[in-house]
Design a protein around this nucleic acid. Sequence first.
DNA 1: CTACTCCACAACCAAACAGTAATATTACTG
DNA 2: CAGTAATATTACTGTTTGGTTGTGGAGTAG
Lengths: 110, 110
Amino acid sequence: MKPALANDTMIDEVSCLFGALGDASRLKILRTLLDTKKPLNQGGVAEAAGLSQANASKHLACLVRVGLVVRNPEGNTVYFTPVLPLVSDLCDLVCGHVSDRAKASYHALR
Amino acid sequence: MKPALANDTMIDEVSCLFGALGDASRLKILRTLLDTKKPLNQGGVAEAAGLSQANASKHLACLVRVGLVVRNPEGNTVYFTPVLPLVSDLCDLVCGHVSDRAKASYHALR
DNA sequence: CTACTCCACAACCAAACAGTAATATTACTG
DNA sequence: CAGTAATATTACTGTTTGGTTGTGGAGTAG
């Protein structure tokens, strides 16, 4: 099997995707989408994540661009859903690592 | 089990970690460390990744700060190693997703 | 000691980015 | 058609960040 970060094109694509995840507002959007079982429209996301309408629109567009969220319009409104299991897997991996590090540094101080 | 992105502190930590991955130069460093079996010092990383010394120093410090790379000094030089399997798992997940999307958009154009 | 290597750090610049406010667009309803 | 709700876009601002240059310090060899 080929190595994961084979060429520079792949490096650019992957850095864009990780960069999309490297922002607190976009993570709040993803958390909202993961927690809510029903599909949410942009207004619902903005309210639940505590963002303005224009801000949520831009962040959602970014998440859709890198393929972490899919966009399906229905008449007047647009519903967004996270791409599973990719998003939850990534969050679980990193959250587990952060928790482990916090626990380790806590125990190191005793 | 608690949801992954539980509180805002976790959001900040995770966004920092993903942000560290969201840069082409840092991904090149990680690719170098993953591909090279021997432990590399800063100069070796900088040369293999095509970065200047000061630039590699800053990026390596960033990766160490978020816990993706560990730093062990030996006398005059400092050797760096990626945190496994976390780094490889994250890269594999995202690279697979990018490949799938590219393949899908290719076949959609026929 | 001197000289050299490796690394960290500060200052600086330019580009990218997040957030806001205002406006435009699209789609539905009466 | 007018009116309204949902979303997209534009222009602008303040902040952040990647990269470079230069410098200083810690370790090592001669």
